[in-house]
Write a protein that binds this DNA or RNA. Sequence first.
DNA 1: AGCACGCCGACT
DNA 2: GTCGGCGTGCTC
Length: 733
Amino acid sequence: MAILRVALDVPLNTLFDYLAPDTEITAQDVGARVLVPFGRNMMTGVIMEVTAYSSVPSPKLKHAAHIFRDVPPLPEGLIALFRFCSEYYHHPLGEVVMNGLPNRLRSNKPFTRKVPSACQYGLTLTGRKADTSIIPARHIVKHRLLARLRESRVMSISDAKQLSPRAPKALNELITLGWIEEIPFAHPATPVPAAQALQIPVLTTDQRNAVDVIAPEIGEFNTWLLHGVTGSGKTEVYLRLISLVLRQARQTLVLVPEINLTPQLEAVFRARFPTLRLVSLHSGLSPSERAAGWLQAQEGAAEIVLGTRLAVFTPLPKLGLIIVDEEQDASFKQQDGLRYSARDVAIFRAKQAGVPVILGSATPSLESHYNAVTGRYLRLRLSSRAVKNAALPVVRCIDTRAAKTKESFSPPVISALERCLALNQQSLVFINRRGYAPVLLCKSCGWAATCERCASRLVVHLRDKRLRCHHCGHQERFPNVCPECGDQDVVPFGHGTQRVEAALAEYFPGARIMRIDRDSTSRKDAWQHMLRDIHEQRVDILVGTQILAKGHDFPKLSLVSILNSDASLFSTDFRASERLFAQLMQVAGRAGRAGIPGEVLIQTEFPDHPLYHALRQHDYDLLAQTLLEERKTAGFPPFVYQALLRAEAPKIDTALGFLTSAVAVAKALGEIEVFDPVPAQMARLKGMERAYLLVQSGSRKKLQAFLGAWRTKLDALPSRKVRWTVDVDPMDF
DNA sequence: AGCACGCCGACT
DNA sequence: GTCGGCGTGCTC
């Protein structure tokens, strides 16, 4: 009787053996999903191996209930990728495998592919004449659907879903009522491309060079670092290479950071390749849609798979190229569960598949930069802007020790904004802090509002008169008096986007000001509408957080002011400068992209800091060299390889106690540098106390070997009330 | 992780 | 006398 070795979504570092449900089991079934009894439940897992014998005593073995043959089994390569991740990140294989599957395929129910809805919806005669007031006013979705249909006659299911996620249900009820009917599509939804949409831009010398160098290497593994200043046209290089890959009938995987950038890039791809079969895996998809896209990729039908970090686990039988855009972005590292770096997994995957991987960035991570310096990655530079006459913006520092700020603004920034307004040009004010003020203080006793579940200050949101924790989402009412001393003098301290917006409104009563942060863009489609307003010049001054920094072109923008970024200069996090630099380069890059000369003003108390110096010169390499030297002296990555043992417990001493015994175990294993356990930066989060222990080594191999042995020993350690995980190549401390 | 079993305090 | 607390141990 064949034995199935099954990966299950449980935090145990083992596969589970089952007797095959019938005799028709072959090696073909490796990679298939399987329904098995586990404990007292049924669970869905993936068959990792089919063997003849099991080391589990036979009375314990149960029969698998059912092998799903609704979708093809996972390809061998993907299983190998999962095994690699499990080993490298020291995370249970079952969790890695199940984490990689779309949710819909993790369930115990077979997958039935829904025929993509080939119809639109329109009003019936009854519906057109009907009195909508007989529908209760609280059925907002129904009213909106009807109103929209009276306007536009027809709408597709996706139009309806844009109105509300509950629209399908409302539609069905209205169909039952006889007000709405299904209208079959006359034509497939593929729009005929306008001739001018296909105009292909002429490449700059740098772009041409990059394409010419990479093109002959398609079909071979190499890691390319496409290092291009903001606005240098990295996307155009991607497009040229993708078109080569398309011609070979192979698939391209494009990974993007976790922001609403996916639709932008999707539109660019569709405009260039009108008949392209593209699957976009973003957070807005329903489980069925995601599974459907995933299957199209697995069947080789999708030519491009575009998505955020999870997309790195999409099965791609005809993979020809991987692109990781904005490779330095922190969102490629998952911060819970399997703590993988999608960028690093992508590189492994490219190597495994024998295809090139392109890491694109204006400000590469120091790790990638170093790999390019040592020759492990091949760097290609795009050093000029792609749009004719678009020069890099002039960057100036405003010394706020000399030019005193009032409500966050120094006189030079105010006059620059005035100038911009007079010239009818747009300007951007960057302050990376949401809310009105980052802290609420009592002037009398020094009390500050803090989150009861986290070790964080509550942020003042004046608009809704509430205090909010930006770490756990907790919110409470704004106190009228200090809860400590009863004094009435509780005041917001410091500046966030809302306060800056209010100050600007005072300075420039006539200006059209728009605030752009997670609060103002959280409503569905809000950001899209705001983008349109910006493009159509209905806005003079944009105030916002890093959400503004990424990927968007604002052609009319000529001035960028950065109000308050000094805090990150002297952070305890050794990666803070690198991140700040990347962020400021990105924001600065928003200015002057379409021929208007751009200007960037940075308010700082440390205008002589090397970071600002490099920024003024647009000199990434200069700063990278400085930072690398610092890291080398201090013994930080990329000169060492690190891992964290993270522990959390209701009481900090429990976590620290566990870590202390882990230190003893680690020291006994030897050959590795072990640091003392310390409380995490955000020591308390969501009611849990957190601490970590850092280990590092100059050799990745040694670190890996150590982690394997260490983890086995840690599993045996008593860990009452403590939850612990290993974080390889940690990004957050 | 779930989910059992299992042994000690405040309630009908 | 029971209901229920979460400590410990197992899941093929």
